[in-house]
Nucleic acid binder design. Structure first.
Length: 417
RNA sequence: GGAGGAGUGCCCGAGUGGCUAAAGGGGACGGACUGUAAAUCCGUUGGCUAUGCCUACGUUGGUUCGAAUCCAACCUCCUCCA
């Protein structure tokens, strides 16, 4: 990056790899240097939790606050009713209002781990665009806002064009998404003096529209800044692990499993992730990321600890590490492993090994359990399970049992009552 | 409103009366190699109270001994015309 920023925020963004593009580096840098900059990021309420794919945006808000500015979290209570078509091949299923509300409640809580909310000048705000979108009057909106949009131009946006080029339908509903998002920016500027929108680089078009609209309607100069769309170095989309999305809410992904996700980072991503997802000093990130061979494993532990501590707290990170060391380094059992509780009655009657694996959540069906056993991937207390028809009873379960599916996925069986 | 085309398993995509739980690829899972890495190689990939049964090729009916495959209606999407 050739540009040398004066402001701390811009410096951090550039140094740590958050910056993909910016509408006006110089002017935005000036704004940061001369006072508190309120900046926002929008989050759609399409699921009950955000996942690690959104973590980079959350970290940007955190840095924004850390460097003396005001973060605004915008929940897309209104826009989620429409659905962002950007770069998507097909239309999303429409979510009902109750589902959206539930999702917002689920998503909200995670932000408290990263930024502090309140009334002060650099305290964060949490807003919902349903506030101004729900009661729009169609004709007024068309006349006041719609007249500033050129359809010719909207069609030229890459996010839309790619869809049209492939002759995939784009409904009028979805087509309006970018107008609504642009309008969000305008409203945030009008109501809260927000002058910056950040987002993933797929949001570039939407962000630029908001800037143009605000210039036309209010004659205010505002800014946009995007982060690179992250893929792991093996080309996969950030945020997927063995069993699907890596959710941020503890109820959907336990701290131990979350920790494991980071622990399993690919070598070549380690340094980059340390810069993006932790607040360790840059030279430390570089040193750790440059470790070679087996040594880099300790860098991954540091990464996992830092990221987990920020989200779930230091204790959770310590517990996760302790469990991981116990399980992987000593081949033992850890408190944090996923567990299944069986009642005394159940084990008196006996439970099939297949059912046990299903109950533990290590496999999703009995057939899969049998397959796992046939593939020599199932172990009980580190002993290979050979016979899928065996049943366990009291005599077999006199102490906690460790179930393993492959080398990495483990669970504990406990007897209760 | 009219004319044509399409809807297949987690995803993409072949299949146009029995040999089809459905080719191939991707993904995912397991194994080997390692460092709880990557790459590579091998295997697996609908479910169940399991030598059998159930569910599955947009939906519902029909033809047939037998249908993802043929017919009808409906739903959704695409293209062209009005």
């Amino acid at each position: 990056m050739q540009y040398k920023p004066k402001s701390e925020f811009m410096d951090v963004m550039i140094q740590r790899g958050f910056l993909a593009d910016c509408t006006d580096y110089q002017a935005l840098d000036d704004a940061f240097s001369s006072g508190v900059v309120p900046g926002y990021i929008g989050f759609d309420a399409t699921a009950e939790s955000l996942h690690v794919g959104s973590l980079i945006q959350i970290m940007m808000l955190r840095w924004l606050q850390k460097t003396g500015n005001k973060p605004i979290v915008l929940m897309g209570g209104g826009t989620t009713k429409v659905g962002d078509p950007s770069f998507r091949a097909d239309e999303r299923p429409l979510l009902g209002p109750e589902q959206i509300e539930r999702n917002i409640q689920g998503i909200k809580q995670v932000f408290a781990s990263y930024i502090s909310f309140g009334e002060g000048s650099t305290d964060a705000l949490l807003l919902n665009n349903a506030e101004w979108l729900d009661n729009l009057n169609y004709l007024d909106f068309l006349r006041d806002i719609g007249r500033h949009f050129s359809v010719n131009r909207m069609l030229a946006f890459e996010s839309v064009k790619s869809r049209l080029d492939r002759e995939q339908s784009l409904s009028f509903l979805e087509f309006n998404y970018m107008i609504l998002q642009a309008y969000d920016f305008l409203e945030l500027n009008r109501r809260y003096g927000c002058v910056l929108q950040m987002g993933g680089s797929d949001q570039w078009g939407n962000i630029v529209n908001g800037i143009d609209l605000t210039r036309r309607v209010l004659d205010h100069e505002i800014f946009g800044l995007t982060s690179p769309l992250l893929t792991t170095s093996d080309g996969k989309k950030m945020g997927k692990s063995q069993d699907g999305a890596v959710w941020l809410n503890a109820s959907m992904k336990s701290p131990y499993e979350f920790w494991q996700f980071w622990r399993n980072t690919t070598d070549s991503d380690t340094g980059r992730f340390l810069k993006l997802y932790t607040e360790l000093p840059l030279d430390e990130c570089e040193r750790l990321g440059a470790l070679g061979g087996a040594e880099i494993n300790e860098a991954k532990v540091t990464l996992a600890n830092e990221v987990t501590a920020m989200l779930h707290g230091v204790d959770a990170a310590i517990a996760a590490e302790a469990t991981a060391r116990e399980v992987f380094e000593r081949g033992g059992l850890g408190d944090d492993l996923p567990s299944v509780d069986l009642t005394k009655d159940e084990i008196t009657e006996g439970i099939s090994i297949v059912q046990l694996f299903v109950r533990a959540g290590l496999v999703s069906s009995g057939k899969e359990a049998k397959r796992l056993i046939a593939d020599k991937g199932a172990r009980v207390n580190d002993e290979l399970v050979e016979d899928s028809s065996q049943t366990l009873t009291n005599t077999d379960i006199d102490q906690p049992l460790k179930l393993s599916a492959g080398k990495k996925r483990h669970a504990v069986v406990r007897v209760i009552g």
